[in-house]
Design a protein around this nucleic acid. Structure first.
Lengths: 218, 218
DNA sequence: ATTACACATCTTGTATACAAAAATATTGAC
DNA sequence: GTCAATATTTTTGTATACAAGATGTGTAAT
């Protein structure tokens, strides 16, 4: 199944916004982007509309589209919602999870641990993604799974920064273990609060997030 | 602030899908729609992309866009997520809600009640919308508020059908009262479970929803 | 009759052209 | 020099034109 150019461009633009190539509040000029990607304005416009829908840019009619990085307040809010959504996943998964998936979580955690030992930040990141993806899936609710994946993706650049916090990797690992342990026991409430603690922005994480904002949002 | 044609068309198309003008799995022909709305294909395509993003239609590259009504399973899933999201709102609102908003909820409920007495289904529907909107707002988390509103809107046609269930209006009213009462007491847990019961598809509601599916999805 | 392939047609995706609104520059009055 | 009104330029939104993939049909071979 071949994707169309506008979809590919949307993904690329997303990346460019995430990595800070486009500063916050910057206007994205259609013709400039068209030149940059060597296409006409049409696929550019389609891509920009997609980004507008997902909230990465704001489209003001007859004025243009502007990069819209979430501010501190909105970020906290998004993480709060993410924590709650994952908590729902965990609670549901506690009773619905399969043995295979539990084993999968264990394996993923093991690889996570290995990455921590090897100081392999990228490796940890990858396995962490997998950990959460499994959890979403095991909620047994595909709609919930999709919504979680969407928000997770949106928060990606900020979470990545958070991981650089000193000692955070080991703590994060311990939290993973606690979550799996609760799931093994079929204890939904404990799994839910464990993952809430894992995801929510609080304590040290809060200050680090605030500091990181300067480097992402302009 | 003037909206552009493609946005207006998107809303109209949404309505046409909701009211069953376009059957499920039906392909939406761009040129036909262009004629229907007396515009070129360009704004039609932009509108269709918006609908695709919000999940109302599925866009298969180089094949076209097809109406995609949620099936029974997906609907249950969506209501489950809605219930959980509203429960989060309620829990947060229990500690954050303002006195003004509480009064507003009371007033809205009173108008709801009046509508029930007058057998005014539309009136009840309108006030019910307001009730939930207030709740979302009082979560104190604007991102959560937006997400709730989005899903709420998506489920609108199905909820509307549910209201026609005999005796449902009075029961729904009682549930509203229970929610407000819990909020007044600042009891987040009680408010959360009250609204979960209010929103979730279970018992009688399940069968009615299944029956209604035939009339909405083809 | 059925299958395979070539051809014709239709539909989507992209490029270009045009129209209208907004932003910017220019001119003139005070 | 400042402000206002107007002209010019940019930029978005829409229409049309074109290219390429998908669909459908007819014909030939088995």
């Amino acid at each position: 199944m071949e994707r169309k150019r506008s979809d590919i461009i949307a993904d690329e633009l997303e990346g460019l916004i995430f990595d800070g190539t486009f500063a916050n509040s910057e206007r994205l000029d259609e013709v400039q982007l068209a030149e940059r990607f060597s296409v006409s304005r049409t696929p550019i416009r389609e891509a920009l509309q997609r980004l507008a829908q997902s909230g990465l840019v704001e489209q003001i009619p007859r004025r243009g589209v502007f990069v819209r990085q979430p501010g501190p307040v909105e970020l906290i809010e998004m993480f709060e919602v993410m924590a709650e959504l994952e908590a729902v996943c965990a609670r549901l998964a506690a009773s619905r999870i399969s043995d295979d998936a539990l084993k999968d979580l264990h394996d993923t955690n093991a690889r996570c641990n290995a990455a921590v030992e090897a100081q392999d930040s990228d490796g940890y990141y990858r396995e962490n993604e997998r950990f959460h993806a499994i959890l979403y899936r095991q909620s047994g609710n595909s709609f919930l799974e999709q919504e979680c994946a969407r928000l997770h993706r949106r928060l990606q650049p900020f979470r990545r920064i958070q991981l650089r916090l000193r000692g955070r990797l080991k703590q994060s690992m311990a939290e993973h273990e606690a979550i799996v342990s609760a799931l093994e026991d079929g204890d939904g409430d404990r799994a839910a609060s464990a993952i809430k603690a894992h995801v929510a922005v609080q304590g040290e994480k809060f200050h680090h997030l605030m500091a990181s904002l300067k480097s992402v949002a302009a």
